[in-house]
């Protein structure tokens, strides 16, 4: 039985690649093809969180449309209520001395 030389085997492999339309890469050189072959993941990633239909989100979508924000109105009402009872935030200090606690306690 005749022995098959390596060069003949390589030629066979090359021909096989040509016939079946695969790339001939005998040394296993990295071509980076796997980065092109892999499916894109971005479109699926974007749809992970469900659509947000809160008033905040809708206001962002439509600029200039001020839909009432119930929480914000409640907060402002609470602040006004506190002010009316004399429990509001203190005035901003004008000077450094005013902002010192010791100075205020006098």
């Amino acid at each position: 039985m005749a022995t098959v030389t390596p060069s003949r085997l390589a030629a066979l492999q090359r021909l096989r690649c040509h016939v079946f339309q695969t790339s001939y890469n005998p040394n296993g050189i990295r071509t980076g093809a796997k980065y092109l072959r892999k499916n894109l993941v971005g479109p699926a990633m974007i749809n992970y969180y469900p659509q947000d239909f809160s008033i905040h989100a809708l206001r962002k979508l439509v600029p200039g449309w001020d839909a009432p924000l119930l929480e914000e109105q409640q907060r402002l009402a609470d602040v006004q209520d506190r002010k009316n009872r004399g429990k509001g935030a203190p005035k901003k200090a004008k000077s450094k001395a005013e902002s010192r606690r010791a100075g205020k306690r006098r």
């Binding site: 093809a33 980065y35 092109l36 892999k38 894109l40 971005g42 479109p43 974007i46």
Partner: peptide, 16 residues
């Protein structure tokens, strides 16, 4: 997620 989606194709090309 937005960033990945916007830059994925360019990144893949550079990776290749």
């Amino acid at each position: 997620r937005q960033g990945v989606n916007a830059n994925e194709i360019a990144r893949r090309a550079y990776l290749y």
